[in-house]
Structure formats: C-alpha cells, structure tokens
Design a binder for these strands. Sequence first.
DNA 1: CCGTAATATTGCAATATTACGATTGAGTGA
DNA 2: TCACTCAATCGTAATATTGCAATATTACGG
Lengths: 110, 110
Amino acid sequence: MGASKAESFSEGQQALALIAKALGHPARVAIVEYLLKVEGCICNDIVGELPLSQATVSQHLRELKGAGLIKGSIEGNAICYCIDVKAINRLQSYLAGVSAKLKAKKGACC
Amino acid sequence: MGASKAESFSEGQQALALIAKALGHPARVAIVEYLLKVEGCICNDIVGELPLSQATVSQHLRELKGAGLIKGSIEGNAICYCIDVKAINRLQSYLAGVSAKLKAKKGACC
DNA sequence: CCGTAATATTGCAATATTACGATTGAGTGA
DNA sequence: TCACTCAATCGTAATATTGCAATATTACGG
C-alpha cells in the first residue's frame, strides 16, 4: 500500500518540506532565478525563457505559489509574479538553526 | 510525453533542486532533525522513532545520501549516519544570495 | 459586443515517488 | 560454524508529479 504518509509528521516538518519541495525541481529553481533577474515578471516572458509549454509553466507557478514562495498580482491583462521573501527567510533561518546545532555538536561522531 | 525534462536545465539549478528535493518530504526532515538531536545515529534507532518501516527509512536515507545531505560510516555492525554541513551550507548561501538580490531590487514591482 | 492576448484549468499519458513485506548480505557473538 | 541483528535491496502496489494539447477563462481594445 502506497504513498504519502506525510500527515503523520509535525506541522513544522510538513511546512518546511512544502517549501523545500517547491524548490525541488530545476524548472522551479529556474523560474525563481528568472524572477530575480528581471524587473517585470510576467508569466508569458517565463514561457519564452524556459523549454516548457505555457500549461506546464503555469502549473509550476501554481506550486510555487502554494508553497508561498511567490505571489502574483494582476497587472493589466497580464500577471506579475514576484518572490516572497518570507518563505525564503523561513527556509534560510531553519538551515541556520541546523548549522548552529551541528557546530555545537562538534564532531560527536562522524 | 511524460515526465522529467530536468536535463534541460543548468547544472547549478539541478544541483540545488536535488538538495531541496531531499528536504522536500516530512519524513526526511524528521530524519535530519533526529540526527541533529542524538549523539549516536544508528539507522535502527531512526526506524523506532518514525512511523515507517525499516525498508522505507533506508530508502529515505539513501535519498538524503544521494543529495549529499548526510554521510554514513560503518560502525561495528551498525551504520552511523551524520549530517553533512557542506550541503546545508550550499543551500543556505544560495538562499542568502536570493535574499540579497531581492533587497537590491527593493520593490521594483510587487 | 467581438476579437485578441494572457493565464488557468482540464484531461490524459509517461514517469517518479512512497511505502512495505520479503529477501539478501554483512558483521558479531556464542 | 550457527544463529542473530542490522541495514540494503528487490519486487510490487498505491499514489504523486511532470508535461502537454485542448479548452476554458479573464481582461483589454476596438
């Protein structure tokens, strides 16, 4: 029997995994990097930039949005997608915590 | 027509996605947190801690290892798994870069 | 309104992931 | 050597993800 026993873990673990998973695909990393690079951030531009169809890009954008990594606002007849710093910061500070705890352990075993 | 056009993205994007994907499952986040908490880090302990079978845990450990997040050394007839700071740091500094670039853009659109 | 452009959604096929029981391989101690 | 334990792997089932074409939907200009 099958997949995803995800509910049996803590909220925090699930929330973190959600953000990490959103960055867990090269296409989505590429989208984030593109959004960082350009000023305007219209979806159709992204489609031109990536080797993916419009439908697929739209789906990736939805996942990024679901994870809180980006937010979109309507801008005329296009849509402006931008990175949400909060999600980035949450992941970053989590990793900082891991790093700090590792340093505290200082070579306890490996 | 199916899945995974991942090869068409840059090495860096793929490498980052690999690390992020490894953290993209609550069970693997839980494993990392457990490894942080304990001194010894034997696989069988983890099995007792998680609501997953030994086979499944072993599979998750393999993915974490494949992403470079943990490394294992043989310790008697058990195996000692430990977090590899390098992968953590790589992801962390990537996020720091994103954060910095965002600040530089300072509200260009959203 | 109608046509057009920009995104989203739907439906489907291909593939990947998650999970587990059963088995295997390796190491230990009696 | 023989049982025992630990962890990896195999085989398989259930489910999730990825990707696209086709089709909606939404918003603007005329």
